[in-house]
Amino acid sequence: MTDTFMLDGKKIRFREGQTVMTAAIDAGIYIPRLCFHPEFKPHGSCKLCTVKINERRVSSCTTPAAKGMVVESDTHEINDERRMLLEMLFVEGNHFCPSCEQSGNCQLQATAYELGMTSSRFDQFFPNRAVDASHPDYLLDFNRCILCSLCVQASRDVDGKSVFAFSMRGIHTRLIVNAGSGLLADTRFDGKDRAANICPVGVIIKKRSGFKVPIGQRRYDTMSVSSPEK
């Protein structure tokens, strides 16, 4: 037997062990998200999936679904807060979409479209971050990193290589490559790794494949990020 909870006035069925996020996905309801990936343990860090339960804001990807709970997600108030989080992510890095190979396939960009972001209210940081083009087949453009940690998890938990890691704390947190030189070429990173194909933005980019699919014909040019996966 399955229990239910209410999400924006709709009855959602869930199984034992499901979170608000996974139950919503199974019900075909979109909750904005960036660091959540169904293959990996959720850690609730991007806060895009924040919902309101009993007047408290919680990450829906880490909150266990419970019988009878009343969840607010797609409301003006919460979407405005999500838009603010997106605006912060955009100014914190260097997100120049027109010159990014990931444009049109980027979850950050598609989520910002979905939530109607036309600009950021904040000042740009314009951080100075170097590109690592040392690897023969892949390049790393750290300017676009949103610290979702999916590459860190994939490389550690699936590939067993721990190629990526986070360094420093708070606003200084950054993605690093686990090699004495700090360069991708000096790791066991391979194009067949799960980590090579997990980045939701444009950090991990395959070389010599740029613009094979023209802008305008890419994933989120033809569907919205909120469309059900299947």
Binding site: V91, P98, S99, S120, Q124, F126, N128
Partner: peptide, 18 residues
Amino acid sequence: VAIGACAINGGLPALRNH
């Protein structure tokens, strides 16, 4: 009205910012 990527976040010319 700010129109286009450059007006909104500096765009391509802002690549000189570092």
